[in-house]
Design a protein around this nucleic acid. Structure first.
Lengths: 210, 210, 210, 210
DNA sequence: TATGAATGAGGATTCATTCAT
DNA sequence: AATGAATGAATCCTCATTCAT
């Protein structure tokens, strides 16, 4: 389908992908300018429409691209780690590493999550729905749930933990403006919240910090 | 300033407000089409610009409008209730009631929170900053914090509860497609989550369900 | 035709005329705003269109109005003065007097002379054509042409004098920004030019300055 | 900057320039319609804005264009001719030739001189100021002023001659409706006026006709 | 295959004019 | 007679998409 684009020199492909990710991340689907993308990528106006029939196809291609980036994260997780909070901490580390490699991809994804352009909303939702579903399923795979208190509904507990993680991520993201700032601090802050959660949801014998 | 608009027949005013809220909620500031608003509201092209000098003024008017809707919620809360979870439950009820009256207002506000159009961002930020600041302050006002466990950092605990509430609200919203479905179920579901939180964060003597 | 307007209270009529003259003088026919006129005149939007069916009719009414102002100038000239340059000087004085009474009218006329809006150009041209024709005819009426050199074509001579007067007027007008500045200077300057013309076109015996 | 426009086929460029000159000449800056220009030039709505970013840029381009037309006149004058009236006659010839080539340019320039649109007035004034300054300076360069009568103020004399030329040009222009009519007649008429001026302003020994 | 000029529907906004009150 | 809200054609300008080279 995108064979013409796939056959391009890798360097050129990357230039186009990055230019497009950046433009969509900054301006959202509708306001993003194909003109700006071709200018930043240094290609001809017509070329973009040779590779992708229209703006929407380009957008969906990028959506697929960032999905693969996210899958790269999953692939690096140590699924043998059975302690829930340990796994979460580890995933956080990996995520930051991948973030450093594909910063544009994350900004694009963040923007996509809030995208409301009718033309692409359906596809985004289907994809994220899927990502989250398989993502969550995977996330809890091989976890030792016996550490959790038995007097609480495990489903509710994991929901609360998920919302806390998402809320924390959101809070940090709003604070972040450059990578230099994202370091120790975030991890220390998370450690404190993580410990609070552990003390609430783990059986007493597993609550020892660290 | 909007005297001309204010003097309109209430039914017409409402038509315009709803059409505009819907269009902005769906498409964001820049991509929202005044043409579409006009068409949906059934008024003449020039009329909209008689009422509001330009798109921005219309948007800011709506921002003010939804702010008042939110203030309506606060005004209905019983601030004498000192139990945290009781207060939250109550606020949830009120919010749903108001939601039923102004469904579009909530979608508009949600979109506005993520709006990136430079032309209106400053105003949105000033307003939400203010709303959130006074909102959170008020929310915890007169709450009996002595019921909470003393071995946990209260700041982290309230954060977790907030994120849980937001996450729950988001989850419910995504589930909702028509109002008929939003009833008992949501409240029962919240009751269960609320109890889980209570058992974790309250001292044992206050954990008795209900 | 304009009976409705004619029957207005004189004070209100004047307010409307002055507001309209000012607006058309400043902005030209097409760019002039009926909104600005009604605002400045302090009348209702509909009223203006009760008095004058449309913008064009209002404009033509004003054109007629200023014509009468110009005719007032002619009526004050002493047609018994037979010396050409003396008569011109005198007319200049009168013109300034009338200018002080109806400043807006002159600005309007000046703008009208350069008006190129297709809708009114024809009428303006017909009128000014007529004004100039009868004006020039009148101007030279009862003049003692025997004072002019006989070796020159009188028709060419009067043309040169006319162009000089028009050029001078234009030059002065471009210099003028307020009335305070228009005084002695202009008249002194004209006197010098007038003398130059006299020395060239009059027989030697009539060249004595003054 | 206008490279895209410059690279157009000459025939198309000319069509656009002429359509724009005509529209601006007839209606002035503000009221001139880009739609009309497009229609008259037979191009697509977007194309005009590919060539020129906006109305103002188009206008300034035309201003530059007509400036070059005027400079073409200066470049053709024989500056070695020292007789004032001979030089003027020659310039008149050249001007008519250029007029035949670029009739719209002159109408545009005339309108521009009276343009009141704030958006372009500054540029027009800077340009005309410069054109007139260097123009007048050049015009009298190398002229043999010793032929003029010494009892007259030379400054006033040149002013009168200038006004006469301008007035004559204006008179001829008003008479002209098609080029076929502009021929011998105009030149013969000017010869007569020119001789009248010469007889008045030159010392007697230089008054010999021709 | 790559190019970039050409296209025209659609964007927000203005304003003379109408007409019900 | 006086009002001013309602109207919609026309304004300049944008931008995804097409297509001849």
């Amino acid at each position: 389908m995108n064979s013409q684009f796939d056959n391009l020199q890798p360097e050129k492909k990357e230039r186009i992908i990055n230019a497009a990710l950046k433009e969509f991340a900054q301006n959202g689907y509708e306001k993003a300018s194909t003109n700006q993308i071709i200018k930043e990528a240094g290609i001809a106006k017509g070329s973009l429409f040779n590779y992708f029939n229209n703006k929407k196809e380009l957008y969906l291609f990028l959506l697929d691209y960032v999905t693969k980036v996210i899958e790269e994260i999953y692939s690096k997780v140590d699924w043998d780690e059975t302690d829930f909070f340990e796994r979460v901490r580890q995933a956080g580390f990996i995520k930051f590493e991948v973030y450093k490699k594909y910063p544009q991809a994350f900004d694009f994804m963040k923007r996509a999550a809030h995208e409301s352009a009718a033309e692409v909303r359906a596809e985004i939702e289907a994809l994220t729905q899927n990502l989250i579903a398989t993502g969550l399923e995977k996330s809890y795979q091989n976890i030792d749930f016996s550490k959790f208190r038995t007097d609480l509904d495990l489903e509710k507990v994991t929901k609360i933990i998920n919302w806390t993680m998402l809320g924390f991520a959101e809070e940090q993201r709003d604070k972040i403006t450059s990578f230099q700032e994202v370091t120790e601090d975030v991890l220390v802050e998370w450690e404190m919240i993580s410990n609070t959660l552990k003390r609430c949801f783990y059986k007493e014998e597993y609550c020892g910090d660290d």
